[in-house]
């Protein structure tokens, strides 16, 4: 089991007074399902953005498969492309409303192909077949590929985003509150889907949420975040252990 992502002592400031992330260290190994739980405002979304290299960190380091990566460094970002994917909280914002779902879905595959879009253009037929296969994998009907985002429900859009994320067979998927906007029935379907896909395709994921039972369900190892700091870390079975941080215990009590 090797390390996919190692983040060490990450610090981030919003302004000179406001420290958002304090000495955050996270390690994610291959095939692992890691959870990050925290209430709103604790900085978990900021951390997600820093790990996805869409925001700069002020100090600390992020290593991806042994190589240091930085938000500002274009060549290190090349390592990320296609190996690390994301699923966001709001599926509506994660899809370009003006573009057909087929093209949004195939965007990663289109661009990660060495020869670029010329190659794909020549093989339009194949492209649609690949898209249909991806849609079926996530339980969506292939006819949806010709539609636009606003024609789909939230659950359907999120499935499409998941299909897009797995299309390039990434090593790591970072999910920031992927089911928080969906109602309970849809949520449980999507979570089942994610677990099934992980078993089949063997990727690691970092599952970020404020909902403890969901994180317990989805992850083997769980980190607890509060006010910009990691206050606890445990394996899922150890939730009710006496060693737990009081904040973790409080969360457990609320959700029980």
């Amino acid at each position: 089991m090797n390390n996919i992502l190692v983040a060490q002592n990450i610090e981030k400031y919003y302004s000179s007074k406001e420290k958002v992330l304090h000495q955050i260290s996270i390690t994610i190994r291959s095939g692992e399902s890691v959870g990050l739980i925290g209430e709103s405002g604790c900085g978990k979304s900021t951390l997600a953005r820093c790990l996805l290299l869409t925001q700069n960190i002020d100090s600390g380091s992020i290593m991806y498969q042994g190589t240091p990566v930085r938000a500002t460094d274009r060549s290190s970002f090349k390592k990320y492309k296609g190996s690390v994917q994301a699923v966001f909280q709001n599926p509506t914002g994660a899809l370009n409303p003006r573009i057909r779902l087929l093209n949004s879905l195939m965007e990663p595959l289109d661009h990660l192909h060495r020869r670029g879009w010329f190659y794909i253009k020549k093989n339009q037929h194949q492209r649609k077949e690949v898209a249909a296969h991806l849609l079926e994998l996530v339980g969506l009907s292939p006819d949806l590929m010709n539609r636009y985002p606003h024609e789909l429900s939230g659950g359907q859009k999120q499935r499409l985003c998941i299909a897009r994320a797995i299309s390039v067979e990434p090593n790591l998927i970072i999910m920031d509150e992927p089911t928080s906007n969906l109602d309970a029935l849809i949520q449980s379907e999507i979570l089942d889907l994610l677990r099934t896909l992980q078993k089949r395709l063997d990727f690691s994921y970092l599952f970020i949420s404020h909902d403890l039972p969901v994180v317990q369900q989805m992850c083997d190892r769980i980190l607890v975040m509060r006010k910009g700091q990691i206050v606890d870390e445990y394996m899922k079975e150890e939730l009710f252990d006496t060693k737990r941080h009081p904040y973790t215990q409080q969360l457990a009590k609320w959700y029980d």
């Binding site: 309970a184 029935l185 949520q187 449980s188 979570l191 909902d211 403890l212 039972p213 969901v214 317990q216 369900q217 939730l239 457990a252 959700y255 029980d256």
Partner: peptide, 8 residues
């Protein structure tokens, strides 16, 4: 509906 609620 009840089964869909994640529980600890």
């Amino acid at each position: 509906l009840l089964a869909a609620v994640p529980s600890l």
